[in-house]
Design a binder for these strands. Structure first.
Length: 480
RNA sequence: GGCCCCAUCGUCCAGUGGUUAGGACACUAGGUUUUCAUCCUAGUAACUCCAGUUCAAUUCUGGAUGGGGUCACCA
C-alpha cells in the first residue's frame, strides 16, 4: 500500500483542561477507523492558544487516553515520521504558509486593533447584522503594508474569502454541503503573537502529516469551508471529512456541558465506570452493530465500524444505559479482577481481606465501582437501626421474642458458617411457626440496618459471631 | 437572528414504496427468591405536521414546525 492510499487518522486535543467524553468518543472512532484499514492513528497536541494553556494538561491527556485502553502510532511522546506532534514546536511552518498565502493574494495583513474590532462587532449586533470583519484592510496599499510592518505595527494575517464563490465539500455522513462565500468571515490565520489559529494549523498539519480522513465533531461543520478554501489555496488535496454528531446532555437539551454534570473522560473513570464499558457505550451512541448486539469488544468494533454508518443526528448521553452497561461489564469480571479494579474505591476502614470476602456478596449488585462503600459499609461500620422498621410487620412482643430466641440459638451454634446458620435459623423459624418473610427481614434489619442486602446467612457469616450477636442484642430493646 | 446540519418508541440503534414497524436501556406485570440485585417470561410505547409524486408513502420531493451546531487574534 502506498503512503497515499494509507489510512491515517488523528485526534488533536488542545491542552486547555480535561479531555471531554465527547472527545474521547471521537478519538475512539478515529482509532477504530485506522485500525480497521491497517492504517495509523496519530495524536497531535494543538497548543496554539498560549493564553488558555493549562500546565500538565498534555500529560493528563496522554494518561487518560491510555487509561481508556487506546494507543497511538505517532504522537508527541513517541514521535514518528512527521514529528514534532506538538504545534507550538512547528511555528515556523505556519508563518511561512500564511505568508505564502499573502504573496498569492489569498490572504492579507490586517492592522485593525482589537478595540476597533470590538466596537465594530457591537455596532453590527446593535443593527442586527452578522458580526463579521468589514474588510477594511483587505485592499491596503502594498507599500503601506510594508511600511507598517517595518514599524513593527501589530498585524494578523487574514484569509481573503472569495465572497462570490460557493464552497462545496463532501461529508461522509451527510453528503454534499454547500456554503456561500459571503457567509464566511475573513478568518484570522496568524495571530499577532505569531501563533497560528486552529484553522491554519489544522490544515497545514493534516496535510503535512498525510491525514487521509478527518472524523471530528459536527460543531466543526461551519468552519470546514474555511479549511476547504485553504486546501484549495495551497493546491492540496483535502482529506475526507466525516462530521460526527455531538453528545447532548442527559436531559436532551443542548451540547453536553459541564454545567449539567461531569463531562471529563477522567471523571467517569474516577466515579467507577470501567474503560471497556465507556468505550462500548461510545460505540453504541450514533452507531449500531450489524447484528444489533449491544455488548461487544473493541476488536469487534474495529472490524465493523464504518463512519458512513454513523447516524446523522445528535445523541443523548443516556447515563442510565451507561450504568446498565457498566454493570454488565462488572458482572463479567472475575472476583480477583474486580478486587483489583475496586482497590481505589475500598474505604480505608475496610481491610483488603474483608473486601475480598464482601466482593462475592455484592458483585451482581454493583453497577458502578464507587457503589462499593454504600453497598458494604455495614460490614465494617456502626449501623443505625430504625426501630419503627423492626416492628412494621409484627408486634413488639413478637419481635422481642424472635430476637431473644435468635440470640440464644446463635450463641450456642456449633459452627459459624453459612450452612450451620441457615439450619439454626430456619429451624427456629419453623419450630415457632414465624412468618418467614417477616422474621428474615427483621434479622436483616437488626444486623445491617438495611432493607436491601446480600443473602442473609452468608451476610451473617461474613459479619462474624461477635458483631452479629452484638447487633442483635442492641436491637432487642429497640423493639419497644 | 444569519448560515449550516438533523428529524422512527421517553432514550439509543434497526428497517421498508405494500411489514403484526424490530432490538436494547428505562418503565409495568409475572416467575425464581429470605430483601435487594441477578436471571427468565410477558407487556406498554414511535414513523413531527402539511402538500406533491404514486395504485400505494414512515420510506421519494418540496414546505412548515421542532431540535441541534456555529457565528473570536478559543479550539
Amino acid at each position: 500500500m502506498s503512503t497515499h492510499s494509507m489510512v491515517r487518522t488523528r485526534m488533536a486535543p488542545s491542552p486547555t483542561g480535561e479531555i471531554h467524553v465527547g472527545s474521547m468518543a471521537m478519538l475512539l472512532k478515529n482509532y477504530a477507523f485506522a485500525k480497521k484499514h491497517g492504517g495509523k492513528f496519530i495524536l497531535r497536541i494543538e497548543d496554539t492558544d498560549q493564553t488558555r494553556e493549562v500546565p500538565g494538561a498534555v500529560e493528563r491527556i496522554l494518561r487518560v487516553v491510555k487509561a481508556y485502553g487506546l494507543t497511538w502510532d505517532e504522537g508527541p511522546d513517541i514521535g514518528g515520521p512527521y514529528a514534532p506532534y506538538t504545534q507550538s514546536e512547528r511555528l515556523p511552518l505556519y508563518k511561512q504558509r500564511a505568508e505564502q498565502l499573502v504573496e498569492q493574494g489569498q490572504a492579507y495583513y490586517c492592522f485593525c486593533t482589537r478595540e476597533r474590532l470590538e466596537k465594530l462587532r457591537e455596532e453590527q449586533m446593535a443593527n442586527k447584522q452578522q458580526p463579521k470583519y468589514d474588510g477594511r484592510c483587505r485592499a491596503l496599499d502594498p507599500a503601506e503594508v510594508t511600511d507598517r510592518l517595518a514599524k513593527n505595527e501589530p498585524a494578523v494575517i487574514r484569509l481573503k474569502v472569495p465572497k462570490n464563490e460557493q464552497i462545496n465539500f463532501t461529508d461522509l455522513i451527510r453528503g454534499e454541503i454547500s456554503v456561500s462565500g459571503k457567509d464566511i468571515d475573513d478568518q484570522v490565520l496568524l495571530k499577532t503573537d505569531g501563533f497560528p489559529t486552529y484553522h491554519l494549523a489544522v490544515v497545514v498539519d493534516d496535510n503535512a502529516m498525510q491525514i487521509s480522513h478527518i472524523l471530528r465533531g459536527e460543531e466543526w461543520i461551519s468552519s470546514t469551508p474555511k479549511h476547504v478554501l485553504l486546501y484549495k489555496a495551497f493546491g492540496w488535496q483535502p482529506p475526507i471529512f466525516a462530521h460526527v454528531p455531538i453528545f447532548l446532555n442527559p436531559d436532551g437539551k443542548g451540547k453536553m456541558s459541564k454545567r449539567k454534570g461531569e463531562v471529563s473522560a477522567q471523571s467517569f473513570l474516577d466515579n467507577g465506570y470501567l474503560p471497556e464499558a465507556m468505550l462500548n457505550f461510545f460505540m453504541l451512541l450514533g452507531w449500531g452493530h450489524p447484528e444489533q448486539k449491544e455488548v461487544f469488544s473493541l476488536d469487534e468494533y474495529c472490524k465493523y465500524f464504518d463512519p458512513a454508518d454513523i447516524s446523522s443526528k445528535s445523541v443523548v448521553f443516556d447515563l442510565v444505559k451507561l450504568q446498565w452497561l457498566n454493570g454488565v461489564y462488572i458482572r463479567t469480571l472475575s472476583e480477583s479482577a474486580l478486587f483489583e479494579k475496586l482497590k481505589p474505591f475500598i474505604p480505608s476502614d475496610c481491610s483488603p481481606e474483608l473486601a475480598k470476602r464482601i466482593i462475592p456478596l455484592i458483585h451482581e449488585r454493583l453497577a458502578i465501582l464507587s457503589e462499593f462503600e454504600i453497598l458494604s459499609s455495614f460490614f465494617y461500620r456502626d449501623i443505625t437501626v430504625d426501630p419503627a422498621a423492626l416492628v412494621k410487620k409484627a408486634t413488639p412482643e413478637l419481635v422481642h421474642e424472635q430476637l431473644a430466641k435468635t440470640i440464644a440459638a446463635l450463641e450456642n451454634i456449633p459452627a459459624w458458617d453459612e450452612a450451620s446458620l441457615e439450619t439454626a435459623i430456619r429451624e427456629l423459624q419453623e419450630k415457632n411457626d414465624w412468618k418467614r418473610r417477616q422474621y428474615f427481614m427483621l434479622l436483616r434489619l437488626a444486623v445491617s440496618g438495611e432493607a436491601a442486602t446480600p443473602p442473609l446467612f452468608t451476610m451473617i457469616e461474613t459479619l462474624g459471631k461477635s458483631v452479629t450477636l452484638e447487633r442483635l442484642s442492641h436491637a432487642l430493646p429497640l423493639s419497644f
